[in-house]
Design a protein around this nucleic acid. Structure first.
Lengths: 205, 205
DNA sequence: CGACGCTTAGTCAAACTTGGCTATTACGCT
DNA sequence: AGCGTAATAGCCAAGTTTGACTAAGCGTCG
């Protein structure tokens, strides 16, 4: 949430936020492109969460508008912060979505991709562990903690990858382009549908 | 990606996808609301990835258009599937973003929220473990595997929550509204900025 | 010294997403 | 029968996001 950043760097102009975001977004939140920032600032100003404090002008460059939180903005920010801290929201992972289509990949490729993914994750955690200390010197501790979470997740995921790859190699699960039981998956689809109370008609496909 | 679903259920009309999504999106991918589907279908048809196959009409209800993948669509789908399977994309988690603002919460509240979060995660994993077997009976195995990953991540996160809560309680890190070193965080901010080669000017705030 | 390129700040039209709306049919209840 | 509710399909205007673009200052390198 932009609001948070504004509150962090109090009197800010859009470009400042942009920089902070691009420097900060190494991971954690990759949303919000340059254009959105100015829109967000203007919208929040209209909503009374922010107020324009001044417009500087350096030389003849575009004037930059400084914003600051209003009382309402502070309240809203506190409320949002609480929401995010106390309510659980599933992190959502593109790979997990793609994984749903596992049966559309050949068995060998799926296993291979998982192994590759595991290696990638392991490499990442390794190089991270090797560099934290010096890399972390000038950062507040909670940034390090964030990394620890990401790290823990990655390690868990790497183990999972190997585990699942093994199961796939062992012949568990069905893959569409295997001759033997090419319609196994089709049956499951029907089963799932049935479970949702839909008529299990044989007409399509 | 809608494309994937279309390829899953071959000749489909928009509503079918909608149902499949809302039934399927329990977790994993919560994007895509009803309205987007029809837009996506039309766009993909324009791009030549899909083709209209027929338009059924039941009674006097709005006609529903059946779509199917073209050759180009199949190719694109395969390409996308590979992209998602072979390239690593960080899952992005709203909480991890909110966590960056840790210093804006009082120490006790931050620790409390983390403990609560840990409990929540533990409960979830527990009730899941208790119900998997019967709940899983009519689903293809890879759906269960997806859950295992989520589960492993949750367990890792729960441990992390307790760990970090303990550290916060032990007085590590800085919190803005503690009198003692209220400007500790401010110093860090400056340090971070300095690291990015920005002038460490004292003028703002 | 001047041409080239990077940084600074911000704008804008085009693309995309949202979710509430319509209009018809089936279903259940008294 | 009669009425209210739910399901079926899809549309669309309003809002949001995108990322390519402008346009001016600051270095710097031959």
């Amino acid at each position: 949430m932009i609001l948070g950043l504004v509150s962090y760097l109090q009197p800010v102009h859009g470009y400042d936020i942009r920089k902070e975001l691009t420097s900060w977004n190494v991971e954690s939140w990759a949303n919000v492109q340059p254009g959105s920032i100015y829109h967000a600032l203007r919208r929040m100003t209209e909503e009374g969460l922010l107020e324009e404090v001044a417009t500087e002008q350096v030389g003849n460059r575009p004037a930059r508008t400084l914003y600051r939180l209003t009382a309402a903005g502070t309240a809203e920010y506190q409320a949002l912060l609480r929401r995010y801290w106390w309510e659980y929201q599933e992190p959502h992972d593109p790979f997990l979505a793609a994984f749903a289509f596992l049966p559309h990949l050949p068995r060998a490729e799926a296993a291979g991709a998982l192994r590759a993914r595991a290696r990638l994750l392991e490499d990442w955690t390794k190089t991270y562990r090797d560099n934290v200390d010096q890399w972390m010197e000038h950062k507040p501790p909670h940034v390090g903690w964030q990394f620890e979470l990401t790290l823990a997740r990655c390690e868990a995921e790497a183990r999972w990858c190997h585990d699942i790859a093994a199961r796939i190699e062992a012949g568990e699960g069905a893959h569409h382009n295997e001759e033997p039981d090419a319609k196994g998956a089709e049956e499951w689809r029907r089963a799932i549908r049935a479970e949702h109370g839909e008529p299990v008609d044989d007409e399509d496909e």
